[in-house]
Design a protein around this nucleic acid. Structure first.
Length: 284
DNA sequence: ATGACGTGCGATGCACGA
């Protein structure tokens, strides 16, 4: 089962590209960010025609997030990140889909820094830490996917020098991302790629795509219930190479099947010897 | 130090992104 996150940068502008990517890659679950469309402008028919059910949280001009599920309807759990009733930006939505709790987020950019936008980013991350704590101990398999607008380390950018003052690289942003990992979330891309460089975003300037001058800012974090199922991860770079692309590429994980839950009627009367075997789990 | 590019809004340049 493939779960992907993709900052589409305008869902109606790039609807053709989205449908082509869905057709070719067939992910079971998709998290989209930067719809840049109000609620009523979401192209629900076209996406249904591609075989996907969807829930979305739109907003005029900016932001906007959605969760798609192949041959299924995502069951919405909540929309809007709790913790600030005055926050009107559409950046967060939760659903159950294909047996997994899926959190789709579009973390604030935070530039320019310092300033009120950076303050908003850090406050948003503090609220996310609270919500993430709720989910990590839920006992459910959870993936928290999206555009985090955080370059976790200097190994996640082609060259940090010209980005030192950018909100994406600030210690305050990185500390909070690290606090998520410290809760027990697994950074799936980094886990699978190890020391290898991997980027998910290339800005439109200075031929950064052509030079592979990228950043890794789209992340999929897995809790301990889900992490053992991690089999592979990747970036669909071909999407970034198409005409008129988003500046992000779809970023995904591949999961193995869910472990079957035994529902036998009764345990054996005589306790057998402990024969439970534990397979090595690469993702724990 | 700035801008390079791109999108939405809506009609012109501006806000915003990263």
């Amino acid at each position: 089962m493939k779960i992907a996150t993709f900052n589409i940068n305008g869902i109606n502008t790039r609807l053709g590209a989205l449908l082509e990517w869905l057709r070719r890659e067939q992910p079971e679950v998709v998290c989209l960010q930067e719809l840049k469309a109000p609620e009523e402008a979401f192209p629900v028919e076209a996406i249904a025609g591609a075989g996907y059910g969807a829930i979305w949280h739109g907003q005029k001009s900016w932001n906007g997030v959605a969760i798609l599920a192949r041959d299924a309807d995502p069951v919405e759990i909540g929309r809007g990140l709790p913790g600030d009733p005055d926050d009107t930006q559409s950046r967060y939505i939760e659903a159950a889909a294909h047996g997994v709790i899926v959190i789709c987020l579009y973390l604030p950019n935070g530039n320019p820094q310092p300033g009120p936008k950076f303050d908003y980013k850090l406050a948003w991350m503090d609220r996310l830490l609270v919500r993430a704590r709720h989910w990590i101990d839920s006992g459910q398999p959870v993936v928290m996917a999206g555009d985090y607008n955080v370059v976790p380390t200097d190994e996640d950018i082609y060259n940090p020098k010209s980005w030192r003052k950018d909100a994406l690289l600030q210690p305050e942003s990185r500390e909070r991302y690290q606090q998520l990992l410290d809760q027990g979330w697994l950074d799936a891309l980094r886990h699978v790629f190890g020391e290898e460089r991997v980027y998910t975003f290339w800005d439109y300037f200075r031929q950064h795509w052509e030079r592979d001058a990228g950043l890794r800012i789209d992340h999929l974090l897995l809790n301990a219930e889900l992490a053992p199922r991690l089999r592979a991860a990747g970036v669909d770079r071909w999407v970034r190479g198409e005409p008129k692309p988003s500046d992000h590429a779809p970023t995904w994980i591949e999961l193995g099947p869910a472990k079957r839950v035994a529902r036998k009627a009764a345990p054996p009367k005589t306790p057998a010897r402990q024969t439970t075997t534990r397979r090595a789990r690469s993702a724990t």
